[in-house]
């Protein structure tokens, strides 16, 4: 398998081609979570053996975060954690949150923001389960959470959601329209919470480097520039997988809305630095939850 094909698998496993997702969802539902989880072992062994590129990038990350040479079982655990989080998404998207033990930290931040009126931005990463964090939001009742993403991904995810839980498809906002962010601004005004995965630096044109696990890594400025303009609280949202059926969701305030318009660039810089630092913190606390299987420090 060539490097580019291995990379393709990673992207695919995450975004998925539609028939594959349908098959996966169907199988998972028929088998149930316990049996489906058993299938993940041979599946991960297979990917371990057939994806040298994903393996290499997993290794580069693990070396940094663990501070030692990763062993085979570290690689396996990394892949398995990824696969388990993916599998659980099917159940979480189906709103079967009762199947999980979810502890939530910092929920009062959301409560305060709701009290003040208006929504906020929830910045996550390809780390653990963004879905479990969204499920917490939904569990709170009438708290609407929309997800903002690149148009290409938005279309695929909408199609996949139509197969899992059509009600959630409307919560996905694609960036492909000129008024995509005007829509975001409006939803925020109406009290919506807007989720963004703010760590992907592939093909970005507006990247800025911040120290991350001991070496500068590029982060995209776009999401933070948007947050600066929208003048709403910026909250970090992370769903950490802790094994078994345990998840831990963290909300923490990254930045208050900018006070003076002339501070734009400084605000963006502070927010990005805080984001990178907190992401590093969560990586150290739960190393195998990192799901960027490409050269993040490129």
């Amino acid at each position: 398998m060539t490097a580019s094909r291995a990379q393709e698998w990673v992207t695919r496993a995450e975004r998925g081609s539609l028939p594959l997702i349908r098959l996966g969802v169907w199988t998972t539902r028929i088998l149930g979570r316990r049996v489906a989880r058993l299938l993940l072992y041979p599946l991960c062994l297979y990917f371990l053996a057939s994806s040298p590129s994903a393996l290499r990038h997993s290794g580069a990350y693990l070396r940094r975060v663990l501070g030692r040479r990763p062993r085979l079982k570290d690689y396996f655990r990394h892949f398995l954690t990824f696969a388990r989080c993916l599998l659980d998404r099917v159940f979480l998207l189906g709103e079967q949150t009762d199947a999980f033990e979810i502890t939530v930290h910092g929920e009062e931040i959301l409560h305060d923001i709701e009290q003040q009126g208006g929504g906020c931005l929830l910045f996550g990463a390809h780390f653990g389960s963004f879905e479990v964090a969204r499920a917490v939001g939904r569990r709170r009742g009438d708290l609407p959470i929309s997800l903002l993403m690149y148009e290409e991904n938005a279309q695929k995810i909408r199609a996949a959601l139509a197969a899992i839980n059509p009600r959630l498809a409307a919560e996905v906002i694609g960036l492909g329209r000129l008024d995509s962010l005007i829509l975001v601004a409006e939803r925020l005004q109406r009290g919506h919470f807007i989720g963004v995965l703010a760590d992907r630096n592939v093909a970005g044109t507006d990247l800025v480097r911040y120290d991350f696990l001991g070496k500068p890594a590029a982060f995209p400025q776009g999401p933070f520039r948007m947050a600066m303009l929208l003048r709403r609280p910026l909250v970090m949202m992370v769903g950490v997988y802790r094994g078994g059926r345990r998840y831990e969701v963290h909300f923490e305030l990254l930045a208050e809305p900018m006070a003076r318009p002339q501070d734009g660039q400084a605000w963006i810089d502070d927010a990005m630095r805080a984001y990178a630092a907190r992401l590093e913190h969560y990586c150290r606390a739960a190393p195998y939850n990192w799901f960027n299987f490409y050269d993040f420090w490129a």
């Binding site: 960036l175 000129l178 008024d179 303009l229």
Partner: peptide, 17 residues
């Protein structure tokens, strides 16, 4: 938007504001 001036959706938000 897009080709022409080459503005993206963040730019459009900024203009709208």
């Amino acid at each position: 938007y897009g080709e022409g001036l080459g503005l993206d959706s963040i730019d459009m938000l900024e203009i709208a504001l």
